[in-house]
């Protein structure tokens, strides 16, 4: 008995799996009754998107996604949730998000985006070349004065400013 050749189906299957995982997680983040669950939904969505990045051959961006988003931003958000969590006045605040109108607006928006995508010709390549490692080209692009050196340095300034600003804003005021 000869098994059918499944090779052409592997990539689409992985894609659909990852896409479904990401989208379902995102929807969970939107609808979960508890905010902590929403944060976990967000984490799952981050992982799903990171997987999609790897499928797109963007290994560096995928790794940065995992490190920065999951390791940094998400932790920050969870800290935020913990520090602003249960107090008298927030108890019972976030039972279930009222979803009717947001869901309608979001659905309409999604529909509109689909229509826009449908009607636009992006002149995309149907079959892209095999993915190459991207870390070296990205590094060169960032440090090349002809390319992105200035924005790169500016963004480091931005991060510094954000760091100082956040520390300043969040410091405890003793009155």
């Amino acid at each position: 008995m000869k098994l059918p050749d499944l090779t052409p189906y592997i990539a689409p299957a992985v894609f659909y799996g990852l896409a479904a995982f990401a989208v379902i997680s995102a929807i969970a983040a939107a609808t979960a009754p508890k905010i902590v669950h929403a944060a976990f939904g967000l984490m799952a969505a981050f992982f799903g998107v990171a997987g999609l990045y790897f499928m797109l051959g963007a290994d560096f961006v995928g790794l940065a996604q995992v490190i920065v988003y999951v390791g940094g931003i998400l932790v920050l958000l969870v800290f935020g949730i913990l520090m602003t969590g249960k107090t008298r006045s927030t108890l019972g605040l976030e039972e279930k998000p009222k979803l009717l109108i947001p869901a309608f607006v979001g659905g309409l928006f999604f529909f509109g985006l689909l229509l826009a995508l449908h009607g636009t010709d992006f002149a995309a390549r149907a079959v892209p070349p095999d993915p190459q490692p991207t870390t070296a080209p990205i590094g060169r692009a960032f440090l090349d004065p002809e390319q992105y050196l200035l924005p790169f340095e500016l963004s480091s300034m931005l991060l510094l400013a954000a760091l100082v600003g956040a520390a300043y804003l969040a410091r405890r005021r003793r009155t």
Partner: peptide, 11 residues
């Protein structure tokens, strides 16, 4: 919502 409507109607 208005933006979404504009997207849809525009198409």
């Amino acid at each position: 919502g208005v933006l979404a409507l504009a997207l849809v109607l525009g198409r």
